[in-house]
Simulated scan of single mutants.
Amino acid sequence: MLTAQLPSNEEERLKELLEYRILDTMSESAYDELSHLDAGAKFRSIDARQKFPPS
Protein backbone atom coordinates (compact mmCIF):
# COMPACT_ATOMS: atom_id res chain seq x y z
CA MET A 1 0.00 0.00 0.00
CA LEU A 2 1.28 3.46 -0.87
CA THR A 3 1.35 6.04 1.86
CA ALA A 4 1.50 9.78 1.41
CA GLN A 5 4.16 11.88 3.05
CA LEU A 6 2.75 14.08 5.79
CA PRO A 7 2.82 17.82 5.10
CA SER A 8 5.32 19.88 7.05
CA ASN A 9 2.42 21.70 8.72
CA GLU A 10 0.49 18.54 9.65
CA GLU A 11 0.02 19.50 13.30
CA GLU A 12 -1.41 22.91 12.35
CA ARG A 13 -3.57 21.36 9.60
CA LEU A 14 -5.10 18.84 12.02
CA LYS A 15 -5.72 21.55 14.62
CA GLU A 16 -7.61 23.65 12.08
CA LEU A 17 -9.55 20.64 10.83
CA LEU A 18 -10.71 19.85 14.36
CA GLU A 19 -11.85 23.46 14.81
CA TYR A 20 -14.43 22.93 12.02
CA ARG A 21 -16.06 20.18 14.13
CA ILE A 22 -17.18 18.25 11.05
CA LEU A 23 -15.51 14.91 11.78
CA ASP A 24 -17.63 12.12 13.24
CA THR A 25 -20.86 14.06 12.81
CA MET A 26 -24.30 12.65 12.06
CA SER A 27 -25.03 11.42 8.56
CA GLU A 28 -26.40 13.95 6.05
CA SER A 29 -28.46 12.59 3.16
CA ALA A 30 -27.00 14.93 0.51
CA TYR A 31 -23.46 13.79 1.31
CA ASP A 32 -24.56 10.17 1.59
CA GLU A 33 -26.02 10.35 -1.93
CA LEU A 34 -22.76 11.75 -3.30
CA SER A 35 -20.87 9.00 -1.52
CA HIS A 36 -23.06 6.34 -3.12
CA LEU A 37 -22.57 7.87 -6.58
CA ASP A 38 -18.83 7.68 -6.05
CA ALA A 39 -18.86 4.22 -4.46
CA GLY A 40 -17.23 2.56 -7.47
CA ALA A 41 -14.19 4.80 -7.35
CA LYS A 42 -10.94 3.50 -5.90
CA PHE A 43 -10.15 6.92 -4.42
CA ARG A 44 -12.20 10.00 -3.65
CA SER A 45 -10.56 13.34 -4.32
CA ILE A 46 -10.84 15.94 -1.60
CA ASP A 47 -8.80 18.52 -3.46
CA ALA A 48 -6.12 18.56 -6.15
CA ARG A 49 -3.55 16.90 -3.86
CA GLN A 50 -5.45 14.70 -1.42
CA LYS A 51 -7.25 11.47 -2.15
CA PHE A 52 -8.96 9.20 0.34
CA PRO A 53 -10.43 5.71 -0.05
CA PRO A 54 -14.21 5.75 -0.44
CA SER A 55 -16.25 5.09 2.69
Rank of each mutant, 00 (worst) to 15 (best):
M1W: 14
L2N: 03
T3S: 15
T3P: 00
T3K: 15
T3L: 15
P7D: 00
S8K: 10
S8G: 11
E10V: 05
E10Y: 15
E11T: 15
E11Y: 08
R13C: 03
R13A: 08
R13F: 07
L14R: 02
L14P: 03
K15H: 11
E16K: 12
L18S: 05
L18G: 00
L18N: 03
R21F: 06
I22F: 05
I22V: 09
T25R: 15
T25G: 06
S27Y: 12
E28S: 12
S29C: 10
A30T: 04
Y31D: 00
D32A: 09
E33V: 11
E33F: 09
L34F: 10
H36N: 02
H36I: 05
L37W: 11
D38V: 04
A39Q: 09
A39H: 06
A39Y: 10
G40L: 06
G40T: 02
A41M: 09
K42T: 11
K42E: 09
F43L: 15
F43I: 00
F43Y: 12
R44E: 01
S45F: 14
S45C: 14
D47C: 08
R49W: 11
R49M: 08
Q50K: 14
F52Q: 04
F52H: 05
P53S: 08
P54C: 04
P54A: 03
S55P: 01
S55G: 06
